[in-house]
């Protein structure tokens, strides 16, 4: 199962990859510190879940969300940002594929709860 980590900070991607692989061993994790590369890879790789940062230079998280909306790419997104702005939170709600808006830092327990709480990446989702 493929998961995309999109954050312009390499270190964050390294950390998140470590946490995710601790929780689940079956994940194929792709990390992108260049959001443009992530956009290119989206349709080809068709990941099951995306962790997305919002504040990135040149191409922002919003640009990725708009790109997905435009291309009708229906992949669940978890926003992972250091911005505590309420405005950003409300704006993110307008994208129906955004499942959660998480404030950094997200540690191991945070990731665990998130994945369990939303039954994301589960083969059998309760109806």
């Amino acid at each position: 199962m493929k998961v995309f980590l999109i954050d312009d900070q390499k270190i964050t991607n390294v950390l998140n990859r470590k946490y995710l692989s601790m929780i689940r061993e079956d994940l194929e994790i792709f990390d992108f510190d260049d959001p443009e590369l992530a956009m290119d890879a989206l349709e080809k790789e068709k990941p099951a879940l995306i962790f997305l940062d919002l504040n990135m230079p040149i191409v922002s998280g919003w640009d990725i969300l708009l790109f997905m909306r435009k291309r009708k790419i229906e992949i669940p997104v978890i926003i992972l940002t250091s911005s505590s702005s309420q405005q950003d939170r409300e704006k993110a709600n307008l994208f129906h594929n955004v499942f959660s808006f998480q404030l950094k830092p997200l540690t191991k327990s945070g990731f665990t709860e998130l994945l369990q709480g939303y039954y994301l990446l589960d083969e059998y989702k309760p109806t």
């Binding site: 900070q9 950390l15 946490y19 504040n55 250091s82 911005s83 950094k104 997200l106 191991k108």
Partner: peptide, 21 residues
């Protein structure tokens, strides 16, 4: 605040992961 929070959250995470490694 974003400029400051971004590296700060990294530091927090990098300290927190110590328990798991």
């Amino acid at each position: 605040s974003h400029q400051l929070r971004e590296p700060l959250t990294r530091v927090i995470s990098l300290v927190a992961i110590k328990e798991d490694l």
